[in-house]
Amino acid sequence: MSVEEPSWEVDPDDDWGVAVIATVGRQVKLRREAVGMRAADFGMAVGYGEDLVYKIEGGKRIPRPEFLDKADEVLGAGGLLSAMKEDVAKVRYPKKVRDLAKMEAQAVEIGVYECNIVAGLLQTPEHARAAIEAAQPPYSQDDVERMVAARVARQSVFERDPAPALSFVLEEAPLRRPLGGTMVWRRQLERVLELGGLRNVTLQVMPTHCEVHSGLDGRIELLKFDDGRAVARSDGAFNGRAVSDLKQLRILELRYGTIRAQALPPQESLALIEQMLGET
Rank of each mutant, 00 (worst) to 15 (best):
M1C: 04
S2P: 14
V10Q: 01
D13E: 13
D14F: 11
D15G: 03
D15H: 11
W16M: 01
G17Q: 03
T23M: 08
V24E: 06
G25W: 09
G25V: 10
V28G: 04
R31A: 13
A40C: 03
L52P: 00
Y54G: 02
K60L: 09
K60W: 03
I62L: 01
I62S: 02
K70L: 13
K70E: 14
K70S: 10
A77C: 11
A83R: 10
M84W: 05
A89I: 07
K90Q: 15
V91S: 01
V91G: 02
K95C: 03
R98F: 00
R98M: 00
R98E: 00
R98L: 00
D99Y: 01
L100V: 09
A101W: 00
M103E: 10
M103A: 08
E104Y: 00
A105M: 05
A105S: 12
A107N: 03
A107D: 02
V112T: 11
Y113R: 09
I117V: 13
V118Q: 00
A119H: 06
A119P: 05
L121D: 06
T124A: 04
P125E: 05
P125R: 02
E126H: 04
P138W: 09
P138N: 08
Y139F: 13
S140G: 07
D142G: 12
D142T: 15
D143E: 15
M147E: 07
V148I: 02
V148Q: 01
A149V: 07
R154K: 14
Q155R: 12
Q155T: 12
E159P: 07
P162T: 05
P164S: 06
L166H: 01
A173V: 15
L175G: 06
P178N: 06
L179M: 14
G180N: 08
V184D: 02
R187M: 04
E190S: 09
V192L: 06
E194T: 11
V201S: 00
V205Y: 02
P207T: 06
C210M: 13
S214N: 08
E221P: 01
K224M: 09
D227Q: 10
D227W: 08
R229F: 08
A230E: 10
R233C: 05
D235C: 03
G236E: 01
G236R: 02
A237E: 12
F238D: 03
N239C: 08
N239V: 13
D245W: 12
R250G: 06
I251S: 02
I251C: 02
L252P: 07
L252A: 04
E253R: 11
G257E: 09
G257A: 07
R260E: 14
A261D: 07
Q262E: 15
L277I: 15
L277C: 05
G278C: 09
T280R: 04
T280S: 08
